[in-house]
């Protein structure tokens, strides 16, 4: 599965780099190096896929996939979603608010059911990191709505 994705990645690289100036080795254009890399990657993943198929065909052995613990893909998606939302609203809402909301959301996704504990923990985290990064280290984090 991974091999196929990488093969496609290599093919895309080749296609995109052909559109760039290639030049000669004396005066290499922008596209020469990525073009070589794309071809190399396609070759490598090609070998990998062929070998994989050959092995499969030879022994009918199943792919030695790493242990699949029955878990929740949804949980990962929710988690990812919360992080992406936080990133999108990072500038608008400002750092103190985003850090608080993100903590609340992530804790909830990981099964923190007591709201009082969740919110107070998130509040403490947001305040501590605000003082640490903004007040003490003087990092210009976005101020956002609260103007902090």
């Amino acid at each position: 599965m991974g091999g196929i994705v990488i093969f496609i990645f290599g093919a895309i690289t080749v296609l995109l780099s052909i559109r760039m100036p290639i030049g000669t080795f004396r005066m290499a254009g922008a596209g020469l190096f990525p073009l070589c890399l794309g071809i190399l990657l396609m070759a490598l993943s090609g070998i990998f896929l062929l070998r994989f198929l050959f092995k499969k065909w030879q022994s009918e052995k199943k792919e030695g996939s790493p242990s699949e613990i029955p878990g929740s893909v949804m949980q990962v998606l929710f988690f990812m979603g919360a992080m992406i939302l936080a990133t999108l609203f990072f500038k608008i809402l400002g750092y103190p608010l985003v850090s608080f909301l993100l903590m609340v959301a992530l804790l909830r996704i990981l099964g923190m059911k007591q709201w009082t504990f969740n919110i107070s923990l998130s509040l403490i985290t947001a305040i501590v990191s605000y003082f640490l990064f903004v007040q003490w280290l003087k990092i210009p984090l976005p101020k956002g709505w609260l103007g902090l």
């Binding site: 990133t87 990072f90 903590m103 923190m112 990191s129 984090l141």
Partner: peptide, 22 residues
């Protein structure tokens, strides 16, 4: 379940400070 959100928050904050870039 508490450590993981904290790691995420610190990673996001830390990453922003490298180039001040969302």
């Amino acid at each position: 379940k508490i450590l993981l959100p904290l790691i995420i928050l610190f990673c996001i904050t830390g990453q922003y400070t490298v180039n001040n870039s969302v």
